[in-house]
Design a protein around this nucleic acid. Sequence first.
DNA 1: ATAGTATGTAATATATAAATTGCATATGCA
DNA 2: TGCATATGCAATTTATATATTACATACTAT
Lengths: 65, 65
Amino acid sequence: MKNNVKITRMKTSMTQEQLARKVGVTRQTIGLIEKGEYNPSLQLCVAIAEELNKTLDELFWEVEV
Amino acid sequence: MKNNVKITRMKTSMTQEQLARKVGVTRQTIGLIEKGEYNPSLQLCVAIAEELNKTLDELFWEVEV
DNA sequence: ATAGTATGTAATATATAAATTGCATATGCA
DNA sequence: TGCATATGCAATTTATATATTACATACTAT
C-alpha cells in the first residue's frame, strides 16, 4: 500500500512519534505504513489525513510507484 | 464509518453479492461496511472505489450524516 | 402457494492490523 | 567524547477485520 504519508509528514517537520501520538497509534505503526508494508484501517487513514491536512485521495489514491 | 458505498452501489444496479465477489470479500462484509459498522482496510476501500468508479474521497471522505 | 433473489443479522473461527518490548544505527549537540 | 532524538526492524501478544455458516424477512415471478 504505497502512499504519500512519509513525504507529507516530513514536509510538516513532524516526527513519526508525534504523528503517531496525534492519531493514537504507536511509532512502529506509522513507520510500517510509511514503508508501504501495512494495510491500515480506514479510520486510521482518515485520522492521518486530517492530522496532515490532506484528504484520503491525496495520501492514498493512485500513488505512483 | 459512515460512507457512500450503498447509495453508489445501488446506482450501478449492482447487488451486494456482485460487489463482494468483484472485490474479493463476502456479502456480509459489504453489508456491514454499508451499514457503517465496520472499519474496513485501506486495500478493501480502494478495491471498492475502483469497482464503483469512484475515488476514496467520494466514498469515504467527509460523508455527511 | 412456492421458488428464487436480495438483504439483515448473529455466532464462531481465522487472518492480520496494531501494540508492546527490545535492540540496533545514525545524527546532532553539549 | 558521551547523551538525546529519530528511525528501522524483529519477536511476541492482543484486538479486530473478515470468513464461514446459518437462519430470518421481503419481494418478485411463476
